[in-house]
Computed example of a mutant assay.
Amino acid sequence: MNLQFSDIGHMIQLAIAPTFLLSGVATMLMVLINRLARIIDRTRVLEDRLDRDYNDLWHDELDVLYQRSHLINYAITLATACGLMVCLVIAMLFLGDSANISLDKYVAAAFVFGMVALIGCFSYLLREIFIAAAGMRKHRHRRSPRNIAKK
């Protein structure tokens, strides 16, 4: 097998689009990891407070934080699976083109699986955002002047 310079250029062209997708998935992973880190930090603060003094509000907030962390973990898992599938697509494109092997069905299947994983990732992220927003509204409602005056 003798690869020509133009063949290598063609293989690189095939891999460019999935590489941009991989960059987007990496950015998504950074967002998810940052959200998880903030959830973990807040969880540690509340757990320390609960160790000193029990409070139903802190306990309720902890329950919400645990739920959010599970959703973010699922999203991270799916984003990682998507990244893996994109890497497989790139590898199969290079292998198929350089070895003249027909991997079209495998490339398509890996790409579809990656997109399904990315859709799932976004779905879990959106669900986590809804829960976080609902928690903020609930916290704001508890701190409104009318509710503070009632206490």
Rank of each mutant, 00 (worst) to 15 (best):
V112R: 10
D104A: 01
V107Y: 06
A110Y: 12
A81S: 13
I33S: 11
R35N: 07
R42F: 14
N100C: 03
M136H: 07
F122C: 09
R38V: 01
H10C: 05
F130I: 12
G83L: 03
A91F: 15
F130L: 12
D48S: 13
R52D: 15
K105Q: 07
N100W: 02
A133H: 13
S6H: 12
L103F: 00
L71P: 04
F111L: 15
I131D: 09
F111T: 12
L118M: 06
A99C: 02
G9K: 04
I16S: 05
P18L: 00
Y66S: 12
D48W: 11
P18K: 00
Y66L: 13
Q67C: 12
T27C: 01
T43F: 15
I76E: 02
I16Q: 07
V89H: 15
V25I: 06
L103C: 00
M85Y: 07
R52N: 15
L14M: 12
F111V: 11
M1N: 04
I119R: 02
E61A: 12
L126Y: 14
I72M: 04
P145C: 01
V112M: 10
M11Y: 07
R68E: 07
L65T: 07
C121T: 02
M1K: 06
F113I: 14
P145L: 01
N100T: 05
E47T: 11
K150Q: 09
M1H: 05
V25Y: 00
V116A: 15
N100S: 05
L36W: 01
T77D: 07
I129P: 06
I90A: 14
D56T: 09
N147Q: 01
A99P: 00
Q67Y: 13
M11H: 07
L22S: 08
I119Q: 03
K138A: 10
A37I: 04
Y66N: 12
L78D: 05
L93W: 06
A79E: 10
K150F: 10
V89W: 13
V25C: 02
W58S: 13
L46V: 13
N147W: 01
T80A: 12
D56F: 10
I129D: 11
S102V: 02
L65G: 08
T77R: 07
V107T: 08
A81E: 06
Y106Q: 03
I8F: 11
I40P: 10
D56G: 08
Q67G: 09
F20S: 00
R38Y: 03
A117N: 02
T77Q: 10
C82L: 05
I90F: 15
F94R: 03
R68H: 04
M85R: 08
V112C: 09
A81G: 13
A117M: 05
L57G: 13
A17P: 04
N55M: 11
L65M: 07
D56M: 12
Q4H: 10
S102H: 03
L3M: 05
F122R: 03
R127P: 11
A108D: 12
Y106R: 03
V45L: 15
R38Q: 06
L57M: 14
